[in-house]
């Protein structure tokens, strides 16, 4: 995949992630991890090759269908990106409103999800009135309300403390295990990789260099590997 300015961000990457898998994507900064998630979301298009996500063929998909692809995915952002002037309820309802769900359905779903994460009584609060952990749970259920098949988290633990990080990982793992959701977590946090031994895909300078269960250190040191 090449950006308009000619930067080739990914090349010769060939991989298959099955429904219901939990996958880490790792690699040094600039390796192409974010580019990969952008391709999945169809924010960038592949320059060559084929890409199929949730039975959408992205390499030849017409752009008016992009929204419908995105409805099958949930994105978890690093900083929670809650709307500060919307209540918890409104924040969680938002993704349902923008795809035109009915008011009744929105009410039922939002109430159900907020109860699930123990925030039923905080529906009317504003984000700044919540603790970090609570905000994180709001952000997480907001990514879940449209019942995505695939959850994408690009460096979700980058700027948060360990408790929050563990809380988020628990939610992602649970969504994967009991919700049967496919989860893709982009990270360079090696702690996570050692602790949760999951399928780990390593990228380096836009190429796939390793794809295995578990993590035993970088296949190519972050500073070298020019000739690999």
């Amino acid at each position: 995949m090449a950006y308009p300015d000619g930067t080739v961000a990914l090349r010769d990457v060939s991989l298959k992630i099955d429904d219901g898998e939990f996958v880490f994507i790792v690699g040094a900064s600039g390796a192409g991890k974010t580019t990969l998630t952008k391709l999945l979301l169809c924010e960038e298009r592949v320059s060559s090759g084929i890409l199929e996500v949730n039975s959408f063929h992205l390499e030849k998909m017409r752009s008016f269908r992009i929204p419908y692809l995105r409805r099958t995915m949930g994105v978890v952002f690093q900083d929670f990106r809650l709307f500060p002037n919307k209540t918890v309820y409104e924040n969680v309802a938002f993704p349902m409103q923008v795809i035109g769900e009915s008011g009744k359905r929105i009410r039922n779903t939002v109430t159900y999800f907020l109860d699930q994460v123990g925030l039923g009584d905080k529906a009317g609060s504003f984000p700044h009135q919540l603790s970090g952990g609570e905000q994180q749970r709001v952000a997480f259920v907001r990514a879940m309300v449209n019942n995505p098949k695939l959850i994408i988290a690009d460096e979700p633990t980058g700027s948060i403390d360990n408790d929050l990080r563990d809380g988020l990982m628990d939610m992602l793992l649970q969504a994967n295990r009991s919700g049967k959701k496919t989860v893709i977590v982009v990270t360079h946090d090696t702690d996570l990789l050692y602790r949760y031994r999951k399928r780990t895909i390593q990228l380096h300078k836009g190429r796939l260099v390793s794809d295995q269960i578990g993590f035993e250190g970088y296949a190519i040191p972050a500073n070298g590997g020019e000739n690999a």
Partner: peptide, 16 residues
């Protein structure tokens, strides 16, 4: 801007 960005990720259509 932020809201629009988020709407796109949620799968809101162009018209919407």
């Amino acid at each position: 801007k932020d809201e629009i960005m988020f709407m796109r990720y949620c799968g809101a259509t162009k018209h919407f």
